[in-house]
Design a protein around this nucleic acid. Sequence first.
DNA 1: CATTGACTTCACCATTAGTTCAAGTCCTAG
DNA 2: CTAGGACTTGAACTAATGGTGAAGTCAATG
Lengths: 115, 115
Amino acid sequence: MGTLTVGEVARESGVSGSAVRFYERQGLIAAARTGGNQRRFDPDAACRIRVARVAQRVGLTVSDIRELLAALPANPEPADWQGLHDRLIAEAERRIRELHAALDDIGSGRRLCEL
Amino acid sequence: MGTLTVGEVARESGVSGSAVRFYERQGLIAAARTGGNQRRFDPDAACRIRVARVAQRVGLTVSDIRELLAALPANPEPADWQGLHDRLIAEAERRIRELHAALDDIGSGRRLCEL
DNA sequence: CATTGACTTCACCATTAGTTCAAGTCCTAG
DNA sequence: CTAGGACTTGAACTAATGGTGAAGTCAATG
């Protein structure tokens, strides 16, 4: 069920070990424990972290991402990941529209500063 | 020189009084003091705050904005404000490009999650 | 068995952008 | 002159995203 250590997941996903533990505390990834209380992750942990990192670039908070990932079923199929991708894309496009709106407000110029 | 109180600037700019004081501490706006140690702002304070708020929507931090505003001369002319607008626009476009890059990475799909 | 590296928890540090609170002071209108 | 609202300070608190260090435990290897 869980075979990867913190260090292995960290290397595979490109984040620090402390970040891996942080993501577990935050519920983005789940870990089983060995008899000696060490974390053992499923192979999809690194994948979830990679998705989480992209989601962060899009502007989602960790708790947004927790909810996003919570929507995934136990053994996600490609279609499930696709749905997640679609949501991320929609979100990114929303942020882009916001920036365009800010651009418009800047362009409106004097209304900001009628001195 | 300075006639507006904290509350007046707050109303004119649409931010809270505590935010106005915060922005003064951070050097986004300047205040003279009355004999009784109360702040009195120039009429352009609200304008600077409005610009600052748009800049935040674009993703700049308060200290970025301090530097941006510090570049303004004492009595800014329209051209000075225009230069500032141009910088904000360039920055917004940069952020939009970053989001598009994130979109591309999401689109690359399976590379994120080759399960 | 002993070493070594990886792991554990817990708690504190940093940053950003403010907000809230308490206790006290100022200013203006009546 | 006095009441009330607006103002002052500084410190503590918030949320988000981790980083760091101490003290101790586990696991694999020679």
